[in-house]
Design a protein around this nucleic acid. Structure first.
Length: 252
DNA sequence: GTTCTGACA
DNA sequence: TGTCAGTA
């Protein structure tokens, strides 16, 4: 929930105020929220800014970055969940595991938080024990779950969903990695090792694999949700109309 | 005192 | 990309 003035954003992200303004003009950064005359930025801006500077550093042109950003816009909410923007960053480090207290969890989920589903979350690795409290391996996944619960989905179901998601994603990611093994690495022979000038190439293949898997999954799920969500909303509206309610306050 | 915009190099 | 002027 951190707010940044443009100066803060520049310092934290390691760029300059000048460049942030340029990225803004080129449409590479979402418009900031205005408080009077001053622009207020959020962590979302910081995340996007890091992505932009990283891609710039890799030699992408402004126009190319803008194009990719536009292409991702459709699956954006999911990309957030999966950490795509972080994934594209140079230090391909995963999310920062964040400590969280029982008190905070209680504040988020209220009395839906039970010993039973806490245990389930621990089993699934959504939560890990640390001293008196817990640590969240993926704050983004937690945030996504929190959003669902706020919408009215029972916490038990959300945890169940997270488990399914993890299994399915593991499976599909495994298939993709398997294909790369089968067609890129294995044909070279069982105990083949890249030699000499081949090393950088294969190092690059391996380094790019996680982002590729993630963007493929993102695209696939974006397509799927684009199909499923309108159906769901349509069914719900139809049901409401049949039940005689003319002004549904919460159609979803 | 700080931020924004535009312009120049 | 840095910097400067003129504003709000």
């Amino acid at each position: 929930m951190a707010d940044y003035r443009i100066d803060d954003l520049a310092r934290v992200s390691g760029t300059t105020v000048r460049n942030i303004r340029v990225y803004q003009d080129r449409g590479l950064l979402p418009p900031p929220i205005r408080r009077g005359r001053t622009a207020i930025y959020t962590d979302a801006h910081l995340s996007r800014l890091r992505l932009v500077t990283n891609m710039l550093g890799r030699g992408y042109a402004f126009a190319q970055i803008a194009e990719m950003l536009a292409a991702w816009e459709a699956g954006r909410s999911l990309a957030d969940v999966l950490g795509l923007e972080e994934a594209m960053g140079v230090p391909w480090s995963s999310e920062l595991p964040t400590p969280i207290t029982v008190r905070e969890l209680r504040r988020m989920f209220g009395n839906q938080l039970t010993p039973s589903n806490t245990r389930k979350a621990l089993e699934l690795g959504l939560l890990r024990r640390q001293g008196m409290g817990f640590v969240v391996p993926s704050p983004q996944l937690l945030e996504a779950g929190y959003e669902l619960v706020k919408l009215g989905v029972p916490l038990d179901e959300v945890i169940e969903l997270a488990g399914v998601l993890q299994r399915e994603v593991d499976h599909v990611a495994g298939l993709m990695v398997g294909l790369v093994r089968q067609y890129v690495l294995d044909p070279k022979g069982e105990d083949w090792l890249p030699s000499g000038d081949e090393v950088p190439y294969y190092a690059d293949v391996l380094r790019r694999l996680p982002p590729v898997v993630i963007s493929a999954l993102t695209a696939a799920v974006a397509r799927s949700t684009a199909r499923v969500i309108p159906d769901m909303v349509g069914d719900r509206l139809e049901a409401l109309i049949k039940s005689g309610k003319s002004t549904p306050s919460n159609p979803i």
